[in-house]
C-alpha cells in the first residue's frame, strides 16, 4: 500500500527541511500568543499539521510522525493535566486560574508568565489531541483493510 512507504523523494526531502521550521513557527505562535495574534490553539494546530505532514510524507511507520503517534494520546492527557495544574497553582495567588507568576515589563515575553505557560499547555493539548485524532483515522483505515473480516468474526463470536 502506498501509505506505508510514504510519498516521493521530493516530498520527503522538502518535508525534512520544512518540518523543523513548521514546528518552530507553531511554538512561536503559541509562545507569543499574549503579545501577537495567535495562541495555544492556533500554535497547537500548526504543530499537529507539521506531524500530519510527516506522516503523509514518510508513511505511518517511519520518521518523526511515527514516534509522535506512539506518544500522542499520552501527551494529550499531559497537556490537559498541565492546564489543570497551572489553574490550581493560581490558588497560591488567591483563586483558581488566578495569574500566580510574577509579571515582568509590559510588551515583553515575560509580561504575563502564567498566560505563556497556559498557552504552552494548550499547545501540547491541542497539538497532540488533533494529531491523535488524525492518526486514529489514518491508521484505522490502514490496518482495517487486511483484518476487517477477521476482527468482525472475532467480535461476533
Amino acid at each position: 500500500m502506498s501509505d506505508s512507504q510514504g510519498m516521493s523523494i521530493v516530498v520527503r526531502v522538502v518535508t525534512r527541511w520544512l518540518l523543523g521550521l513548521i514546528l518552530i513557527f507553531g511554538l512561536a505562535v503559541a509562545l507569543y500568543g499574549h503579545l501577537t495574534p495567535g495562541g495555544g490553539f492556533a500554535g497547537g494546530t500548526i504543530v499537529a499539521c507539521g506531524f500530519v505532514l510527516a506522516i503523509l510524507a514518510f508513511g505511518g511507520s517511519r520518521g518523526p510522525g511515527a514516534f509522535f503517534t506512539r506518544w500522542a494520546s499520552a501527551l494529550d492527557a499531559i497537556g490537559a493535566l498541565a492546564f489543570l495544574a497551572l489553574a490550581i497553582l493560581g490558588f497560591t495567588a488567591g483563586a483558581f486560574l488566578q495569574q500566580w507568576a510574577a509579571r515582568g515589563d509590559a510588551f515583553t515575553l515575560g509580561s504575563a508568565p502564567s498566560i505563556v505557560l497556559l498557552n504552552l499547555a494548550i499547545l501540547l493539548k491541542v497539538g497532540a489531541g488533533l494529531f491523535a485524532g488524525f492518526s486514529a483515522i489514518a491508521l484505522f483505515e490502514q490496518t482495517a483493510d487486511p483484518d476487517t473480516a477477521d476482527s468482525e468474526k472475532g467480535a461476533d463470536a
Binding site: 499574549h34 509579571r103 515582568g104 504575563a112 502564567s114
Partner: peptide, 11 residues
Amino acid sequence: GAANVVTAILL
C-alpha cells in the same frame, strides 16, 4: 500584562 486583548480575555 497581555498585550493581545483576545488572549487576555481567553486566559
